[in-house]
């Protein structure tokens, strides 16, 4: 009997999804993934700790020493300066990561659940429902998500958004666009997997549809989702920012939001007030970059053909023998 090669069984750390990939990676891929993970983690930490880190509240206009000055340059009391209305830019930029995170979580949960379930049933059972769903999803691909977000935003709150209606407008419009993406990916995986011998063997055993679907098919068909989740996440907070920039976003008194702040900063730029636009803008760019790097990194590592492996070990082993 051939011996089973001893498999290195690491600690529980080796089994946490992202960390496991991080350990596998080398070179550029490792750098990309690492940068992505760090940026994303920093944003999550900032969002959670915003009330602790930020010097003021996001809607604070005065403190014990009096009303904040409008359009004040960065100084010791206002590290990143203040806006024309007198909000502290640093505080608002930090707090806005909370809003962005909520939009991301809401959008991903809604589109993930609907998209995956539809894809699973449609791919497995096939038939007319499947055909209709595929056509509908193709049609939805043509929808511009921002336009949809505007419509939903107006429907939800006539354009004057509170925190929740703003977030839900972004999340729902993004879900409409992303449900078809999850649907397509999961459906094609399911169509492939339902012809695999292990699914047939479950059927031969006499397993019912529910068991076949959830025990055997579902878990094997979600491997490519991390990349779409990251795309989905980026689009979610960017749509939220887009809504804010168009003036349909969240009121500054109910939540901080980068897009809104950017829009208010447009007139500042020509007046030489650079700090109101720079920081929220950078925050958007960095978060998009971080999540994209995370997604790309995970995607490269999930595919054995794209995954780079350390060539040094090979060379070293050859040297040793020579």
């Amino acid at each position: 009997m051939t011996a089973v090669p001893a498999k290195p069984r690491g600690t529980w750390l080796a089994k946490v999804p992202v960390l496991r990939e991080l350990r596998q990676s080398v070179g550029v891929q490792r750098f990309m993934l690492l940068v992505g993970v760090i940026i994303t983690l920093v944003y999550i930490l900032v969002a959670l700790l915003a009330p602790v880190i930020a010097p003021y509240r996001f809607n604070q206009l005065q403190d014990a020493s009096g009303t904040f000055p409008g359009s004040a340059a960065p100084s010791a009391t206002h590290l990143w300066g203040t806006t024309i209305a007198g909000y502290d830019v640093l505080s608002r930029t930090l707090y806005a990561s909370q809003t962005a995170l909520m939009a991301i979580v809401a959008a991903v949960i809604i589109s993930l659940i609907i998209g995956v379930l539809l894809g699973l049933f449609s791919g497995y059972f096939g038939g007319p429902l499947d055909r209709i769903l595929v056509v509908v999803c193709d049609a939805i691909y043509a929808f511009p998500s921002l336009l949809l977000a505007i419509v939903i935003s107006i429907m939800l709150s006539r354009g004057q958004s509170s925190l929740w209606s703003g977030i839900m407008a972004a999340a729902l419009s993004i879900s409409v666009v992303y449900v078809p993406q999850y649907f397509r990916v999961v459906r094609s995986e399911v169509v492939r997997i339902k012809a695999e011998a292990y699914v047939e063997s479950a059927k031969v055993i006499g397993a019912g549809n529910g068991r076949v679907l959830f025990v055997h098919v579902l878990r094997n068909s979600v491997r490519t989702l991390p990349l779409i989740i990251t795309l989905n996440a980026v689009d979610a907070f960017e749509t939220l920012a887009g809504l804010g920039f168009l003036g349909l976003g969240i009121e500054p008194s109910s939540a901080a939001e980068w897009g809104y702040d950017l829009q208010k900063a447009v007139s500042d730029v020509t007046a030489g007030i650079w700090w109101t636009a720079l920081f929220p803008g950078l925050a958007i760019v960095l978060l998009a970059l971080g999540i994209s790097l995370l997604g790309e990194g995970l995607n490269d590592l999930a595919d054995p053909r794209l995954r780079r492996r350390s060539a040094e070990a090979n060379e070293a082993a050859l040297e040793l023998e020579a």
Binding site: Y198, S201, A202, V204, I205
Partner: peptide, 16 residues
């Protein structure tokens, strides 16, 4: 079905 066993050709793909 419990009274019928089935062995597939490719042992590589017949297990989840």
């Amino acid at each position: 079905r419990g009274d019928i066993g089935f062995v597939f050709q490719d042992p590589g793909t017949s297990f989840n």
